[in-house]
Nucleic acid binder design. Structure first.
Lengths: 188, 188, 188, 188
DNA sequence: TATGAATGAGATTTCATTCAT
DNA sequence: AATGAATGAAATCTCATTCAT
């Protein structure tokens, strides 16, 4: 009845489970009791690992931020590929559903100082754009704003498939078109 | 201390105030007590007009849907302007902050059947795109998907100004560029 | 089943009941559920009047402080009596059991800044002593320290009767003796 | 990370640490986790030595009682000194801060039967007073009550120095004065 | 129409205690 | 002797909802 695990493993289990439930039901609709029931442990154990529900949320956001940071950096620092490859990798990262937290932005903004999370993201995107401009492969106006717009718009599309049928070819084509890249550079 | 108002007026007051608070703080983070305090009435009055918080939310969504419907129809049925003018009007509607409900999508999906609301919106947008195609002024691939992507991306940009400086000229230029319209048709 | 009272009355009821239970059982040993059960209301009502248990404790301390302040001031400002009468009134105030909160001093010091509460008390006592000295009726060394010592010592004696038999005559005699007042000035 | 100690030594370590924390924060405000953290051992170890928190408290009280007993007896049975010396020793014992448990009296009364502890103390004090009376050095009324009052009052003064400046000379003088001893017998 | 005190189910949080290692 | 993850009962707190006035 009592299954003991190494603390780090258990903590990650709580984080992963919470993350999944939060993504499914939102922060407010997920109770601590839901989380511990799902894992199959006592409520007290949750508070052994996290001081409060708010601290858990902060930890998840922090974790997500770190994961994102790692992915983005690995893409940007990739020496081999040029701008086209980098934008491809960026896009695939985006389209990979389970790597995106559908966070209740309201709550995030209450918790983390808006700077830390969002701005970091912007900084990386700017670097990507810079590469495109330096390689003379990106000649549009407002490249940063356009890219942000494009990525957020795509995120929405991918999360709300509805009756539209969006596949990899579709959105890569849309990116070529939106960034005014030569047709086929992303879609081969 | 007891101000009586005609029922319909009072009901609208509650709806408008709730809507504002919900947009600011989200559904879950807005308490009934917040709403009545903001208006300056007693809690009981809220329940005189609405059976429950959920009914209020439904009413707001319904109201928003109707307003949107009206606006979109008036734009689309405008016989005078062509595609360029229609897309301009659409855009201005979008950029007008307080006409957009930043809905906690999680909750909406719990309440309304996912189809009804979003599909309507899509139907109208399709009609707009059709006009552009028919007038031979829209020659991009995946016009509907691109337009949805563009509008949602713009919505994000406008709501998160941060250190980017986006004004009307900026986003109209971005629209021309994204939809591959001749430069200047929207920005004059 | 639902008895409504004017808020101020209800708030005082909660304060008075809590105070009694706190005095009987201490802060930590008195649960909110004890308080509301004693009054016969729902738990939620408690939180309608007090944001938290800590706020209640602060309110009680504040209330006690104010009551004490009033009593002390009325004694000191009494124009008729001289030092003897004032010290008599002071003493009677002290010996009146239910006017003394047996506060867990530890907790108090955590909650109120130690200055506010205790120092006020000292200020008043100093004034009393000053009167005695001015009237040349108090000729001991360290009059303030001695008086504080005496009052706290008496407080202890009165709260712990044990097998000692202390009545009014007894402690008045002890005061005369401790302050080196002429025998009989307090005991007639 | 695992330091083994002889059981008796470890038990004393727990007792001493608990005692310090209880004195600082009170019984209720000191958690078992605080105690073991302070010592640097695991929670389980506490329960290896004590069945429960309550048993620890009882043990501390018992220990304190024994220590007090020893000290008092050594003072009273001292054949050499007379009353003056004995009262001096008593006083110095009192003024030695860490020898006084600031016990949450509420809790004590719940745990130990009120008689046992306090009465012992009273018994010893009575013996001291008896010595003074027999030696004809103590001629006040209610000598026991006055002495208890005096000691408790002094305890308070010594624990709440605040803006009063109390040193050994001060309180010895106050004792001489309160017990109506000839000036100088304690202060040399 | 309007009031706001009162309710109560259910959420979060605490912490003494247990137990497998 | 010692560890510390795990337990669970019980405390505090929240807030949508009710109801007597």
């Amino acid at each position: 009845m009592r299954i003991t695990k190494p603390p780090e493993e258990r903590k990650q289990e709580i984080l992963a489970t919470s993350r999944r439930l939060f993504e499914q039901n939102g922060f407010e609709n997920t109770k601590i009791s839901d989380i511990v029931k799902e894992i199959g442990v006592a409520k007290g154990l949750f508070y052994y690992y996290f001081k409060s529900k708010e601290e858990l949320i902060k930890a998840i956001i922090e974790q997500y931020k770190i994961e994102l940071e790692i992915k983005i950096k690995s893409i940007l620092s990739n020496e081999e590929g040029g701008f086209y490859q980098k934008i491809l990798l960026f896009t695939d990262m985006y389209s990979n559903q389970n790597e995106l937290l559908l966070l209740d932005e309201q709550l995030i903004h209450e918790i983390i100082d808006s700077k830390s999370f969002e701005i970091d993201w912007l900084v990386h995107l700017k670097k990507l754009i810079e590469i495109g401009v330096n390689e003379k492969k990106l000649n549009i106006k407002y490249p940063i704003e356009t890219t942000i717009m494009m990525f957020y718009g795509l995120k929405y599309l991918l999360e709300h498939p509805k009756d539209m049928n969006i596949n990899r070819f579709t959105y890569l084509t849309m990116i070529e078109q939106t960034l005014h890249l030569p047709m086929g550079v992303l879609t081969k």
